[in-house]
């Protein structure tokens, strides 16, 4: 992996990686990817990709509304609210 790859991944994951950390992170991630390479060497022809480790299927819920409005409670932990809306730093200019 190149430092550019790692910076890009960091940006996509909203993780700040400083120039001081970059070599260390590149080295660690390269090790992990090497392990993945090892896995990729296995012949998987004819093997159905596994989507989930549990060999079960998704349980379906009835289409019923059972939740009530608990906005006041949920908004107690918000940094800022106004007129029922959560306020966040402006996302467009």
């Amino acid at each position: 992996m190149s430092p550019e790859d790692v910076y890009k991944l960091g940006m996509l994951a909203r993780l700040e990686i400083t120039p001081g950390e970059i070599d260390d992170v590149v080295a660690k991630l390269t090790d992990i990817v090497a392990m993945v390479d090892q896995l990729q060497a296995v012949d998987t022809d004819g093997v159905v990709p596994m989507a989930h480790p549990l060999d079960r299927s998704q349980r379906l819920r009835e289409d019923e509304v059972t939740e009530e409005d608990r906005r006041a409670l949920y908004q107690q932990s918000a940094a800022a609210v106004e007129r029922g809306l959560y306020l966040v730093p402006k996302v467009i200019e």
Binding site: D63, G84, L85, Y86
Partner: peptide
């Protein structure tokens, strides 16, 4: 649908903001 795809909150249009948003939706 009456309720959301992954939670049992209502999907009714035009409700007061955040009154149909439960812990899963949040």
């Amino acid at each position: 649908t009456r309720s959301k795809i992954f939670s049992a909150s209502a999907t009714r249009y035009g409700a007061e903001p955040n009154t149909q948003a439960n812990l899963v939706d949040l």
